[in-house]
Measured scan of single mutants.
Amino acid sequence: GNIFIKNLHPDIDNKALYDTFSVFGDILSSKIATDENGKSKGFGFVHFEEEGAAKEAIDALNGMLLNGQEIYVAP
Rank of each mutant, 00 (worst) to 15 (best):
S40L: 08
P10R: 14
D19H: 12
Y18P: 02
G68E: 08
I32T: 07
A16V: 09
D13E: 07
A53G: 12
V23K: 05
P75N: 14
D11V: 10
F21G: 08
I5N: 02
I12T: 04
I12A: 04
K6W: 02
V73S: 05
P10H: 13
E51I: 09
F43Y: 09
I12L: 08
A53F: 12
I5F: 04
I3H: 02
I5G: 01
E56N: 10
V46D: 00
Y72V: 07
L61G: 04
P75T: 13
G44T: 00
K31G: 01
Y18L: 10
N62Y: 12
I32G: 01
A33D: 04
K55V: 13
N7I: 03
E70V: 11
N37P: 05
G52N: 12
L66R: 09
N2D: 02
S29G: 02
S22A: 09
A54V: 06
A53V: 14
N2S: 02
I27K: 00
D13G: 07
L66Q: 06
F45N: 03
E70L: 11
D13N: 11
I32D: 00
N62A: 15
E36V: 14
E70R: 12
I71P: 03
F24R: 02
V23L: 14
D35T: 14
N67Q: 12
G63R: 15
K41A: 05
N62E: 12
P75V: 12
G68H: 15
G63F: 05
L17P: 01
Q69C: 15
E70T: 15
S40G: 07
T34H: 04
E51V: 12
D19T: 15
F4M: 00
H47K: 03
A53H: 15
F45V: 00
D19R: 09
G44V: 00
D59N: 09
A53Q: 08
L17G: 00
V46C: 08
T34Y: 15
D35F: 12
K39E: 11
E56Q: 10
P10A: 14
E51G: 10
I3N: 04
G1A: 07
S40T: 10
N62G: 12
F24Y: 05
L66G: 05
V46T: 06
D26G: 11
L66F: 13
G38I: 13
E49K: 14
I58P: 02
K55Y: 10
L28C: 05
E56F: 04
N14H: 10
N62K: 14
I5C: 07
D35R: 10
F4W: 00
N62D: 12
E70P: 10
K55P: 06
L8T: 04
F45M: 03
S29L: 01
Q69A: 15
V23R: 05
E56L: 11
E51S: 07
E50L: 09
Y18F: 13
L65M: 12
T34C: 14
G68C: 11
N2Y: 00
L8R: 00
F4H: 02
D26R: 07
F4A: 01
V73F: 03
S40H: 13
F24S: 02
F4R: 01
I27L: 05
N37A: 13
D19K: 12
Q69P: 04
G63T: 09
I3M: 08
I32H: 04
I5M: 11
K6R: 09
K15P: 07
E51K: 10
K31N: 03
L17K: 01
I27G: 02
N14R: 03
E49D: 10
A57H: 00
T34G: 11
K15S: 06
H9Q: 10
K55M: 11
L8P: 00
H47R: 02
G42Y: 08
N7C: 09
G38S: 10
E56I: 07
A54E: 04
D26E: 12
D11R: 07
E70F: 07
F24V: 04
E49P: 06
L66T: 08
A54L: 06
H47I: 01
M64L: 14
K31I: 06
F4V: 01
I3L: 12
K15M: 06
K39G: 13
F45T: 01
N62S: 14
A57E: 02
H47N: 03
H47S: 03
S29C: 04
D59Q: 14
G63A: 09
N14L: 05
T34K: 05
F45I: 00
F21T: 07
V23I: 15
N37F: 14
E36I: 14
P75H: 14
P10Y: 10
N14D: 09
L65W: 08
S30H: 05
F48D: 00
E50N: 12
N37Q: 11
N67A: 13
P10S: 13
A33P: 10
F43D: 00
D19S: 15
K55R: 13
D59H: 10
I32N: 03
I32Y: 01
K55Q: 13
S30D: 03
L65F: 13
A54Y: 07
E51R: 13
A53R: 10
L65A: 15
Q69E: 15
D13R: 05
D59L: 15
E70D: 12
F21S: 06
F48N: 00
L17M: 12
F45L: 01
M64V: 11
K39M: 14
F21D: 01
A53T: 12
E49I: 11
I27Y: 01
K55G: 10
A33E: 05
K41P: 02
S40D: 03
K39S: 11
G1V: 03
N67P: 02
I12Y: 04
D35C: 14
N14Y: 04
G52S: 11
N2H: 01
A33G: 08
D26L: 07
P75G: 15
N67S: 12
A57Y: 01
L17V: 09
Y72I: 08
K39A: 07
A33N: 07
V73C: 11
S29I: 02
S30C: 11
D19I: 11
A60V: 12
L66H: 05
N37H: 14
G1S: 07
G42L: 15
A60L: 09
A60T: 14
E50I: 10
I58D: 03
K41N: 05
V73G: 04
K31R: 06
G44P: 00
K39V: 08
F21V: 09
F24H: 04
L28Q: 07
G25H: 00
A74P: 01
K41H: 05
N67K: 11
A33T: 06
Y18V: 05
G25T: 01
F4N: 02
E56H: 10
E36N: 15
F21L: 14
I3Y: 01
F43W: 02
G25D: 02
I5Y: 01
F24L: 07
I5T: 06
N67W: 05
N2G: 01
K41M: 06
F45R: 00
Q69R: 15
S30G: 08
